[in-house]
Computed example of a mutant assay.
Amino acid sequence: MRSQVANTMFDFIEALEKITSEEEAFVELRKVADSFGFSSFAISGIPEPHERIDPYVLLNGWPEEWATRYMAKQYFTVDPVIQRTILSDNAFVWEDALRHMNIGKSGLNFMNEAREFNFINGFSVPIHSLTGFRAIVTFASDRIDLSSEARGALHMISIYAHNKIKELKTGGKQVVFDSGRHLTLRERECISWCSEGKTAWEISAILGISERTVAHILENAQRKMNTTNRTHLIAESLRAGLIR
Protein backbone atom coordinates (compact mmCIF):
# COMPACT_ATOMS: atom_id res chain seq x y z
CA MET A 1 0.00 0.00 0.00
CA ARG A 2 1.39 3.39 -1.01
CA SER A 3 2.00 6.11 1.56
CA GLN A 4 0.43 9.56 1.27
CA VAL A 5 3.77 10.97 0.13
CA ALA A 6 4.03 8.36 -2.63
CA ASN A 7 0.44 9.06 -3.69
CA THR A 8 1.23 12.78 -3.95
CA MET A 9 4.23 12.02 -6.16
CA PHE A 10 2.42 9.66 -8.52
CA ASP A 11 -0.69 11.87 -8.68
CA PHE A 12 1.54 14.78 -9.71
CA ILE A 13 3.32 12.73 -12.38
CA GLU A 14 -0.01 11.49 -13.73
CA ALA A 15 -1.45 15.02 -13.77
CA LEU A 16 1.63 16.41 -15.50
CA GLU A 17 1.35 13.87 -18.28
CA LYS A 18 -2.09 15.25 -19.17
CA ILE A 19 -1.34 18.96 -19.17
CA THR A 20 -0.74 20.96 -22.33
CA SER A 21 0.35 24.38 -21.05
CA GLU A 22 2.85 26.01 -18.72
CA GLU A 23 -0.06 27.61 -16.83
CA GLU A 24 -1.43 24.16 -15.99
CA ALA A 25 2.05 23.04 -14.91
CA PHE A 26 2.25 26.04 -12.59
CA VAL A 27 -1.06 25.11 -10.96
CA GLU A 28 0.05 21.51 -10.38
CA LEU A 29 3.40 22.53 -8.90
CA ARG A 30 1.65 25.05 -6.68
CA LYS A 31 -0.41 22.17 -5.28
CA VAL A 32 2.76 20.18 -4.63
CA ALA A 33 4.48 23.10 -2.92
CA ASP A 34 1.47 23.62 -0.68
CA SER A 35 1.25 19.93 0.24
CA PHE A 36 4.91 19.89 1.35
CA GLY A 37 4.61 23.15 3.25
CA PHE A 38 6.40 25.55 0.89
CA SER A 39 5.30 29.09 0.14
CA SER A 40 7.45 29.66 -2.98
CA PHE A 41 9.00 27.69 -5.81
CA ALA A 42 10.87 28.22 -9.06
CA ILE A 43 12.43 26.28 -11.92
CA SER A 44 15.35 27.74 -13.83
CA GLY A 45 18.39 26.94 -15.86
CA ILE A 46 21.68 28.26 -14.50
CA PRO A 47 23.43 30.74 -16.80
CA GLU A 48 27.11 31.50 -17.06
CA PRO A 49 28.28 34.41 -14.85
CA HIS A 50 28.38 36.83 -17.81
CA GLU A 51 24.81 35.98 -18.89
CA ARG A 52 21.47 37.17 -17.52
CA ILE A 53 19.23 34.71 -15.72
CA ASP A 54 15.95 36.07 -17.12
CA PRO A 55 15.85 33.88 -20.26
CA TYR A 56 16.66 30.78 -18.20
CA VAL A 57 13.70 31.04 -15.83
CA LEU A 58 11.18 28.34 -16.78
CA LEU A 59 8.57 28.68 -14.02
CA ASN A 60 8.36 31.41 -11.38
CA GLY A 61 6.37 30.93 -8.20
CA TRP A 62 8.25 33.56 -6.19
CA PRO A 63 6.72 36.73 -4.70
CA GLU A 64 6.66 39.23 -7.56
CA GLU A 65 8.72 41.87 -5.74
CA TRP A 66 11.49 39.39 -4.89
CA ALA A 67 11.56 37.88 -8.38
CA THR A 68 11.84 41.35 -9.93
CA ARG A 69 14.65 42.34 -7.58
CA TYR A 70 16.50 39.03 -8.02
CA MET A 71 16.56 39.33 -11.80
CA ALA A 72 17.24 43.06 -11.88
CA LYS A 73 20.30 42.62 -9.67
CA GLN A 74 21.26 39.24 -11.19
CA TYR A 75 21.52 37.76 -7.74
CA PHE A 76 22.26 34.28 -9.05
CA THR A 77 25.95 35.28 -9.07
CA VAL A 78 25.96 35.60 -5.25
CA ASP A 79 23.11 33.24 -4.30
CA PRO A 80 24.65 30.48 -2.10
CA VAL A 81 21.92 28.04 -3.15
CA ILE A 82 22.95 28.44 -6.80
CA GLN A 83 26.62 28.05 -5.89
CA ARG A 84 25.82 24.82 -4.02
CA THR A 85 23.76 23.59 -6.97
CA ILE A 86 26.69 24.05 -9.35
CA LEU A 87 28.94 21.92 -7.13
CA SER A 88 26.80 18.80 -6.83
CA ASP A 89 23.76 17.04 -8.27
CA ASN A 90 22.52 15.90 -4.84
CA ALA A 91 19.24 17.42 -3.62
CA PHE A 92 19.68 19.39 -0.42
CA VAL A 93 17.98 21.27 2.40
CA TRP A 94 19.43 24.77 2.53
CA GLU A 95 19.98 24.81 6.27
CA ASP A 96 21.97 21.56 6.14
CA ALA A 97 24.06 22.29 3.06
CA LEU A 98 24.86 25.96 3.50
CA ARG A 99 26.28 25.60 7.01
CA HIS A 100 29.22 23.75 5.46
CA MET A 101 29.88 26.42 2.82
CA ASN A 102 32.15 29.43 3.06
CA ILE A 103 29.63 32.18 2.32
CA GLY A 104 31.14 35.61 1.72
CA LYS A 105 29.76 39.00 2.71
CA SER A 106 27.76 39.42 -0.53
CA GLY A 107 26.18 36.01 -0.02
CA LEU A 108 25.24 36.80 3.58
CA ASN A 109 23.76 40.14 2.54
CA PHE A 110 21.75 38.35 -0.12
CA MET A 111 20.43 35.80 2.39
CA ASN A 112 19.35 38.58 4.76
CA GLU A 113 17.40 40.23 1.94
CA ALA A 114 15.77 36.94 1.02
CA ARG A 115 14.55 36.45 4.59
CA GLU A 116 12.26 39.46 4.14
CA PHE A 117 10.24 37.31 1.71
CA ASN A 118 10.18 34.16 3.89
CA PHE A 119 13.14 32.62 2.06
CA ILE A 120 14.53 31.30 5.32
CA ASN A 121 14.89 27.61 4.54
CA GLY A 122 14.22 25.50 1.50
CA PHE A 123 14.80 22.38 -0.54
CA SER A 124 16.60 22.49 -3.87
CA VAL A 125 17.16 19.90 -6.56
CA PRO A 126 20.12 20.38 -8.91
CA ILE A 127 19.63 18.97 -12.40
CA HIS A 128 22.80 18.24 -14.34
CA SER A 129 23.17 16.52 -17.68
CA LEU A 130 26.19 14.73 -19.07
CA THR A 131 26.39 17.42 -21.76
CA GLY A 132 26.99 20.15 -19.16
CA PHE A 133 23.47 21.58 -18.84
CA ARG A 134 22.66 22.82 -15.32
CA ALA A 135 19.32 23.73 -13.78
CA ILE A 136 17.59 24.00 -10.41
CA VAL A 137 14.16 23.33 -9.00
CA THR A 138 13.84 25.11 -5.67
CA PHE A 139 11.24 25.41 -2.93
CA ALA A 140 11.31 27.91 -0.05
CA SER A 141 9.48 28.76 3.14
CA ASP A 142 10.06 30.12 6.63
CA ARG A 143 10.54 26.56 7.92
CA ILE A 144 10.47 23.04 6.55
CA ASP A 145 9.98 19.57 7.98
CA LEU A 146 10.66 16.89 5.39
CA SER A 147 11.03 13.18 6.10
CA SER A 148 13.54 11.18 4.06
CA GLU A 149 10.59 9.78 2.07
CA ALA A 150 9.29 13.29 1.39
CA ARG A 151 12.73 14.45 0.25
CA GLY A 152 12.97 11.51 -2.15
CA ALA A 153 9.50 12.16 -3.55
CA LEU A 154 10.14 15.87 -3.95
CA HIS A 155 13.43 15.10 -5.70
CA MET A 156 11.59 12.93 -8.24
CA ILE A 157 8.78 15.46 -8.63
CA SER A 158 11.27 18.26 -9.26
CA ILE A 159 13.12 16.44 -12.02
CA TYR A 160 9.87 15.42 -13.66
CA ALA A 161 8.48 18.96 -13.44
CA HIS A 162 11.62 20.51 -14.92
CA ASN A 163 11.66 18.12 -17.85
CA LYS A 164 7.93 18.54 -18.48
CA ILE A 165 8.30 22.34 -18.62
CA LYS A 166 11.22 21.99 -21.05
CA GLU A 167 9.09 19.65 -23.12
CA LEU A 168 6.24 22.17 -23.25
CA LYS A 169 8.63 24.92 -24.33
CA THR A 170 10.38 22.86 -27.01
CA GLY A 171 7.29 21.11 -28.31
CA GLY A 172 7.91 17.44 -27.53
CA LYS A 173 9.87 14.73 -25.78
CA GLN A 174 11.17 12.82 -28.76
CA VAL A 175 14.72 12.97 -27.39
CA VAL A 176 13.84 11.00 -24.27
CA PHE A 177 11.88 8.48 -26.35
CA ASP A 178 14.87 8.05 -28.66
CA SER A 179 17.22 7.60 -25.71
CA GLY A 180 14.92 5.01 -24.17
CA ARG A 181 14.98 2.90 -27.33
CA HIS A 182 18.70 2.31 -26.83
CA LEU A 183 18.23 0.70 -23.41
CA THR A 184 18.66 -3.07 -23.23
CA LEU A 185 16.08 -5.33 -21.59
CA ARG A 186 18.46 -5.86 -18.64
CA GLU A 187 18.96 -2.11 -18.23
CA ARG A 188 15.20 -1.57 -18.16
CA GLU A 189 14.85 -4.39 -15.66
CA CYS A 190 17.43 -2.83 -13.32
CA ILE A 191 15.83 0.61 -13.63
CA SER A 192 12.44 -0.88 -12.78
CA TRP A 193 13.77 -2.49 -9.61
CA CYS A 194 15.63 0.70 -8.78
CA SER A 195 12.36 2.63 -9.04
CA GLU A 196 10.92 0.23 -6.43
CA GLY A 197 13.59 1.44 -4.00
CA LYS A 198 15.87 -1.57 -4.32
CA THR A 199 19.60 -1.11 -3.77
CA ALA A 200 22.23 -2.42 -6.18
CA TRP A 201 22.88 -5.29 -3.78
CA GLU A 202 19.17 -6.20 -3.58
CA ILE A 203 18.83 -6.04 -7.38
CA SER A 204 21.86 -8.30 -7.74
CA ALA A 205 20.23 -10.87 -5.45
CA ILE A 206 16.93 -10.69 -7.36
CA LEU A 207 18.54 -11.04 -10.79
CA GLY A 208 21.30 -13.46 -9.80
CA ILE A 209 24.14 -11.20 -10.94
CA SER A 210 26.87 -9.37 -9.05
CA GLU A 211 26.34 -6.03 -7.35
CA ARG A 212 29.19 -4.64 -9.44
CA THR A 213 27.39 -5.72 -12.62
CA VAL A 214 24.18 -4.00 -11.49
CA ALA A 215 26.10 -0.79 -10.82
CA HIS A 216 27.70 -1.01 -14.27
CA ILE A 217 24.31 -1.63 -15.94
CA LEU A 218 22.77 1.40 -14.22
CA GLU A 219 25.75 3.59 -15.09
CA ASN A 220 25.35 2.63 -18.76
CA ALA A 221 21.63 3.42 -18.58
CA GLN A 222 22.36 6.81 -17.01
CA ARG A 223 24.75 7.62 -19.85
CA LYS A 224 22.24 6.60 -22.52
CA MET A 225 19.49 8.69 -20.90
CA ASN A 226 21.83 11.70 -20.39
CA THR A 227 21.34 11.63 -16.61
CA THR A 228 23.83 11.94 -13.76
CA ASN A 229 22.18 10.02 -10.92
CA ARG A 230 19.65 7.27 -10.37
CA THR A 231 16.77 9.53 -9.34
CA HIS A 232 17.17 11.45 -12.59
CA LEU A 233 17.37 8.15 -14.50
CA ILE A 234 14.12 6.91 -12.96
CA ALA A 235 12.34 10.20 -13.68
CA GLU A 236 13.38 10.12 -17.34
CA SER A 237 12.43 6.46 -17.63
CA LEU A 238 8.97 7.29 -16.30
CA ARG A 239 8.61 10.08 -18.85
CA ALA A 240 9.63 7.74 -21.64
CA GLY A 241 7.08 5.16 -20.50
CA LEU A 242 9.79 2.57 -19.83
CA ILE A 243 8.59 1.91 -16.29
CA ARG A 244 5.34 2.48 -14.40
Rank of each mutant, 00 (worst) to 15 (best):
Y56A: 02
S88H: 03
L29S: 11
K31P: 02
T85C: 09
M71W: 09
E48M: 05
D142A: 10
A72I: 06
F92Y: 06
R99S: 15
V137H: 02
I144V: 01
D54M: 04
E113D: 15
P49R: 00
H128F: 08
A97E: 13
T138F: 04
T77M: 03
I86L: 14
G45H: 10
R30D: 14
A42P: 02
S35E: 15
F123N: 02
F110T: 04
I136K: 12
V125D: 03
N109Q: 11
K31L: 09
A140K: 01
R115N: 09
F117G: 10
H128E: 05
V137I: 14
E17G: 14
L59R: 01
F133D: 14
A72C: 01
D142Q: 14
E64L: 12
I82N: 06
F117N: 06
D79S: 01
F139I: 09
D89I: 01
S21V: 07
H100C: 07
A25R: 10
L59I: 02
A15K: 11
T68M: 10
D34E: 14
I144T: 06
R69P: 03
R115V: 06
R52T: 13
E113R: 09
V32P: 06
H50E: 12
E51A: 00
R143N: 07
R134G: 05
P63I: 01
E28C: 05
M111H: 05
E23I: 13
K73R: 10
V57I: 10
G61D: 00
P63L: 03
F123Y: 05
R52W: 09
V125K: 12
S39C: 06
I127D: 11
E24C: 09
I127P: 05
R52G: 02
D79P: 00
F139H: 11
L130I: 15
G107K: 08
R69E: 09
L58K: 14
I43N: 04
I46H: 07
I103S: 00
L108G: 02
I19S: 10
Q83S: 14
T68Q: 08
V137K: 03
K105R: 15
A91D: 07
T68C: 00
V78G: 02
R52N: 08
H50V: 11
T77L: 04
V93D: 07
F36A: 00
E113N: 14
S35C: 09
L58Q: 10
G45N: 11
L130Q: 15
W62P: 05
Y70E: 05
P55D: 03
F139D: 00
E65Q: 13
S106E: 15
K18F: 07
H50N: 07
E64N: 08
L98E: 11
E28K: 03
L98S: 12
S124M: 04
F117I: 11
E116M: 13
S40L: 08
M111K: 04
V27S: 10
D145G: 00
